[in-house]
Design a protein around this nucleic acid. Structure first.
Lengths: 185, 185, 185, 185
DNA sequence: CATGAATGAGTGTTCATTCAT
DNA sequence: TATGAATGAACACTCATTCAT
């Protein structure tokens, strides 16, 4: 089973998930095609297990990581850094998340998406608290700010992922927060 | 042929590009399977023609539209509105651009992507001009601002596209520029 | 298409429908596997087309054949003969109908079954008329008589079909009607 | 093993024998897949053991049950009732016998079929005695009468089994014998 | 310009069976 | 006696592509 998951991870470095066949996985893992079926039943399932394995540690980490940080903007800054760092240190996951996941069939009903929505709600709570305590302007729409944060992170990493350039969490966080949190001019 | 392109457009409203087969296109267009092949040779080609048809008018429009607008930030605001408006009025294109295009094989080498990069360069020039004339802070990284603008637009529309909700260009533009151009708190 | 149907008919003489693979059909018909898919889409469909081709002429014939026969019992006798004759002259169909059809998935929802039910209703009408005009006892349950007629035909042919012995419609009809229509002792 | 046979019985209530897999049996029985294989070697074997377990008590019972009944027609009537009662009280067996058994591979060579043939011979002997002692007309073909009895029973139960309706041995026996043993009109 | 028949090379999935432990 | 991992061989189905007419 471990062999199979390792094989997929290895293959994901070279090609898209959709382009990976059971035959390839089997060959790479050095096992029989039927065995994959035995463990994962359908390719959808296989996908979800793989994604879960990748994502879960991050989603757990973030929840504890923010404890003890003062101020909403500081928390958001920290969260942005963590997010960049995730992509920097796990480029295969980044590739999947930025390029592929959205047109996996059934993705938006999956529990991985549930997990990510949980992450989204966390961001929203931080923003709401920021608005209540005056750190963030009253006329800012919390949900829109969240989307802008997520979109900014994504599009700042996108070219690096596509063209195989390194991601620097520190620099990107500074640049991103400069734009999002300050007066632009 | 027009019938074929219309058929694809019609099919794209219901399903992803990747899930559309030549047989379906032929049936929907009311022509023979072989005929499509005569016109488009490969499926890659077919895709690119379709995308081009969708995108080109927008890319042309934007170039002329910004003439006569004073100030970089005003130009960016206008451009953001146009972008939202494009997604609002052409949801099929929005769906493709936001959900699918990135994992089309060969997309990042295609001339559609070239066109979009041209659009990206245009944004960059506006930002550069803004920095030069002092409208935008010197310490802002132009390319990062561009990515943040594009990512913000994308992620503000994403939930609306996924869950079939309406997109309001006016409101979204205000909300977006509030966050990006002003001091957050 | 004709080639494919002929191939199936040919194969059905040697083995059950369930045991026939697309590969075999393709090979026997001298065509490609994909072509079968093109015409029939699913194996269920293929089955239904084949069965329809076998059954339809008989179901049509019977409807016209009974016109002009006097008396319910005479009509039933004629119908029984026709039924035996069908099995005698079309042993492949007989094999399918007697041995296989009942555990085809979805058979009892299929339109072949609808057709057969239409045939059953026809028998019922004949019986009902016989009861009304006094040819048949009032205390006989029409539906049960119909089932007994159908079951008798089936089980009189069954051993002949299984062990490849000839079916003699004339003899069987006499023997069958002797038992069903007369006092047994 | 008892657990395994129980598991199969349980599964047979929900689906056809052909559709049941070793994996399912193993899971339902709570044992290992390989273990079933140890016990039954081939699926054919498994099938036959199950069928034997179901059928044997009935075949034994019938042999003793008819002792002490006077007259061939009375014996046949009793036997018909027993047969209906078997199907009424054991619908899983009925389903197998009426719908599935005939296209089990090798069924007509199996010893279950031998047992059923023994049952058939018993019926034949009763009929023969009836003909000899004048209870049954001389011109009736014994084997045909047997087939008609078996076919009648089967087709009177068939709709009830297919559509899940109750089977009433008493009523069916009366209706059946009314038609088979008396003058029809 | 257009068609319909035909193909080839996969794809995910299924499952009885085997075997080392 | 029992298990869990592993296999091999098939199966229905898919679809882009080709080509004679």
């Amino acid at each position: 089973m471990v062999k199979i998951l390792e094989a997929i991870t290895q293959l994901l470095e070279k090609k898209e998930f959709e382009a990976i066949t059971w035959a390839e996985i089997a060959k790479t893992a050095g096992v029989n095609e039927g065995l994959i079926y035995k463990y994962f039943k359908t390719s959808r399932n296989l996908l979800h297990v793989v994604l879960h394995d990748f994502m879960h540690p991050f989603l757990v980490e973030i929840e504890t990581d923010l404890k003890g940080i003062e101020g909403s903007l500081n928390q958001l800054r920290r969260l942005i850094w963590l997010h960049f760092d995730l992509y920097a240190s796990n480029r295969v996951l980044a590739k999947i998340l930025l390029l592929e996941v959205r047109n996996f069939p059934g993705y938006f009903d999956s529990d991985i998406y549930q997990g990510i929505q949980g992450y989204g709600r966390q961001i929203l709570e931080i923003i709401d608290r920021g608005i209540q305590n005056g750190e963030i302007h009253q006329d800012i729409v919390a949900k829109d700010l969240r989307q802008i944060i997520l979109g900014s992170i994504e599009h700042l990493c996108l070219p690096k992922i596509i063209f195989g350039r390194p991601i620097s969490p520190d620099e990107l966080t500074v640049s991103c927060c400069n734009i999002l949190f300050r007066q632009i001019g």
